[in-house]
Computed example of a mutant assay.
Amino acid sequence: MHAVFQEMFLLLLAAVHTSDESQEEGAIQAVKRSIAYIDQAFAEPLDYAELAKNCRLSPRHYSRLFRKLTGISPMNYIIHSRVSEAKKLLTSSSESEQQVAVKSGFSDPFHFSRTFKRHVGISPRLYVNLHSEQSRIAVYQYLGELLALGMKPIGAPKLLLSGKYVRHLVDGITETGSTVVTPDMERLKRLQPDAIFTFDGYHYDQYCQIAPTLNVQWSQPAFNRFKLVASLLGKERQADEWIQRYADHVQNARLHLKKSFSAEKTVSFWYFREFPNQFDVYFEREMLYDDLELNPPPAIERARREQLQLPFKQSKDVAEMPLYAGDYMLVVVDSKARELFDQVRQGDIWRNLPAVHAGRVTLLTTDWLYVDPISRLGQLKELSRLITS
């Protein structure tokens, strides 16, 4: 009798489990139908509680399954659908901002503008300007990013225009200052740009008086910046295609390096400026340490592993050169620092570095400090030849 009871109990548990699974699967299918309905009716008034009720689920259960299927909440999904529709209408029709707001499901233009800016990062009007084929954009960073996307800005500072790897692409671009932080405001005003790109808030308030200004933070991986700029310009597909082509070049460069470059060898990247007895050591050099997976010297590797807020470079005393020297050394020397660098080369510290003894030091120009997509690709193509030779 005990054995029969156990068998009956197990059958009952199995039946309950099967019933629960069946109910859960039914709930999932109901939420999937709800998502399909939202995709068609996002411009209509949609009530979250009513959507859950139509699925015969509690709002909490509905939200949980919705997140499981889409990764976001029902309300964020609705907003995302409405904003996506608004972006299409803004760039493919001649309708007013108010008409776009209504057709996208927003209650009024003010709500539309505020929601659009919160989710896209710019106002609807600026979004239209940036997506126009005749858009006039001035940049105080991100020149290489725009050029990689097939867009030519109307103005940029001399520092960016003179970069070796973009120089052949900048004909017709007006010089609007000497560096990325020293703008020529009068010349910029005369250009009458539709929009201005800056970084880390530099001169943001002044630029805003001339044209709508986009501030893209610099403290993020270079390709993240690239993709963000592309998203603001509606060029996400072009950015993805460019990054994929770059990845193909990375694979080729890795194969080339493996033929004559030992996997355990380390590579350091330094910069000598016009400061006596100092040099900059780079802790973060994405093309070297991330793309090509080359090894930094142990001191740099240790710092990269242990410090969460590691700066991309730090100034060091020349006495510390042995600590940060790799088996191969890539050394950028500023044109203003050549005499100071020659003094360093005459010293015993430099002469006793293993890479110097082995003839594995490559001197580079400041063109190697540029980190835009086009410069990064140019450096990648040169690097394997420089190291293996």
Rank of each mutant, 00 (worst) to 15 (best):
H168Y: 02
E236N: 14
L90N: 03
N129I: 09
G144N: 05
P298W: 12
S58Q: 09
D108Y: 00
V102A: 05
L65V: 15
M8N: 13
N295Q: 11
V120N: 04
A247T: 13
L65E: 06
W242F: 14
K265M: 06
Y127N: 05
F279T: 03
M321P: 07
R304H: 11
G105H: 01
L46N: 06
I387C: 04
K381C: 06
K316F: 10
H131V: 13
A52V: 05
Y370D: 08
R190G: 02
S22M: 12
D240I: 04
D290L: 07
F110E: 06
T91V: 15
P212S: 11
V318R: 13
F110S: 15
V120S: 05
S162A: 14
A3T: 11
I243A: 08
D108A: 03
Q141G: 09
T18E: 11
E320D: 15
W270M: 10
T388W: 09
I243F: 06
A253P: 00
N224I: 14
V371C: 04
L369F: 10
P276S: 13
T365N: 14
Q220R: 14
S73I: 08
A43D: 11
I387F: 00
E133I: 12
K189V: 12
R254K: 14
I72P: 04
A43C: 03
L363E: 13
A253Q: 05
L386W: 10
K258I: 05
F9A: 12
H61I: 13
R385Y: 10
R67L: 10
Q99S: 04
S19A: 09
C55G: 11
R187P: 01
A148Q: 02
D240M: 07
I72A: 12
R237T: 12
D327P: 07
A27F: 04
E274M: 02
Y202A: 14
P74W: 03
V181R: 04
D334S: 11
A195R: 00
H131K: 09
W242K: 08
K87S: 07
N295G: 00
T198S: 06
I349W: 03
H168R: 02
R82K: 13
A36W: 08
G71F: 02
R187I: 01
N76D: 15
R385Q: 15
S22E: 12
S104G: 10
L69K: 03
L46H: 02
Q309W: 13
G234Y: 07
Y77K: 01
E382G: 00
T179V: 07
E293L: 02
V331F: 06
E293N: 11
G150I: 09
F312G: 07
S84L: 03
S34R: 00
A27T: 11
Q314V: 14
V361I: 15
L330K: 05
I78G: 02
L340P: 00
Q29Y: 08
P45A: 03
Y202D: 11
F261I: 09
S162M: 04
A86D: 03
E286F: 02
E175I: 11
R114T: 12
R187M: 04
L130Q: 09
Y48H: 14
A239M: 07
H80W: 07
F110G: 03
G234W: 05
D372K: 06
S92H: 14
S384Q: 13
K88D: 14
T198E: 02
I196A: 01
F116V: 13
R64H: 09
H357L: 09
